[in-house]
Design a protein around this nucleic acid. Sequence first.
DNA 1: CACTGCGCACCTG
DNA 2: CAGGTGCGCAGTG
Length: 405
Amino acid sequence: MSEPRYREWILDTIDSLRSRKARPDLERICRMVRRRHGSEPDRTCLELEKLIQEHAVLKVNYKGSVSYRNAAKVQRGRRRSEQAAGKKSSSSSSSSSSSSSSSCSSAACNVKRASPAELNNSDSAQGPADDDPMEDMEDELSTTAGMDSSMDEEEEASLDAPCMQIQSSADSGISLSPVITDAEAEVTRGSATPSKSGSSCHSTPEKDRAAARVSPERTQTAAQRDIGSLELEAALQLAAICPSAQRSALTQEEEPRAGESALTPDQLLSDRTGSPHQDEAVGSDHLEEGEKRNNVDDVAHLQGTETAKNGGMKKRGLFKAEEMAQDLLQWSVADVVSYFSAVGFPEQAVAFRTQEIDGKSLLLMQRSDVLTGLSIRLGPALKIYEHHVKVLQRSHFQEHCDVFS
DNA sequence: CACTGCGCACCTG
DNA sequence: CAGGTGCGCAGTG
């Protein structure tokens, strides 16, 4: 968790830079924070990273350079209409809140299809949402990994193996896009990367700038947009083509850092073994009983308390996470409320009722939906998302993907 | 010199 | 067309 003070400083700084029509890049942000608050740039960078991971800030690649967005503002702004158009079918009553989330990732989403290259990730772009929750997962991943500088590596990676290609496309959407040609990828790579090294962008100012404006953004944007509808399909195809991909498709959503997407699925996996999300990150084929324990534990809390109204929810005695998740689609609002009450969030459960979150909505929820859309405190919201919503979604998707593999 | 304000061009939906 | 973004330049302290 980032320090609240820093969160405020950084968000203020980003807002301030934006209002000045200056690019909120790392350098400016650090400088302004230091000037205003005396904070060391290193620390600012660190806090900024945290905010990015918390989706409070979106790291975007815009016009060939890295830029940062106040996720709260991005979400509410651009993506609203898209969500309205794309998501209405599925998000139901939670729309008001979840649409905002749209964030999320929206941003980063963009974060993908949502807005141009900026949101390449943004967190969270909402797809043309059929009812498939995969979208949201991918939205989220798009907000994080997809939006930063990892693009380049992803493109490179995409040239390697089919598995990698689809994998990375599921991640950033780049390589899958029909719009991207090798030449375009080359351009994108060339102009988008050197933001720091300052190469081609500065040699012939006008031309290169024009190139930077048109090509990288264009290609990325197109790719991101196109990928939106392809993501799910790609992920599923991937599951069929490349067994390990299924796993990575599920895990990538967790990868906020640039470059990691260029790792092989196995690398991704092994990387995760040290991560706190390890138990959540592994795919179904790796989810051994022991590894599942944590997931199941959460769900298992229900056993004693859940009433037997929902056919799927209650299976005499113990239920397994995947069973639960599979039946998630059948959960009513009351089931959801009961669940969160049972797992220790009775106060917050009320918010789920207020927002009329049923099982389907739950599957569509993104981090930002939980954090901001329910109007519950951040602490419990994070726990709810990380330990329950995400776990349930993942379990559900594992089931879902198994069907296709 | 750093910072600020803003005209303008560009892009997307 | 509306709205977001940010470059580049002029003004300010």
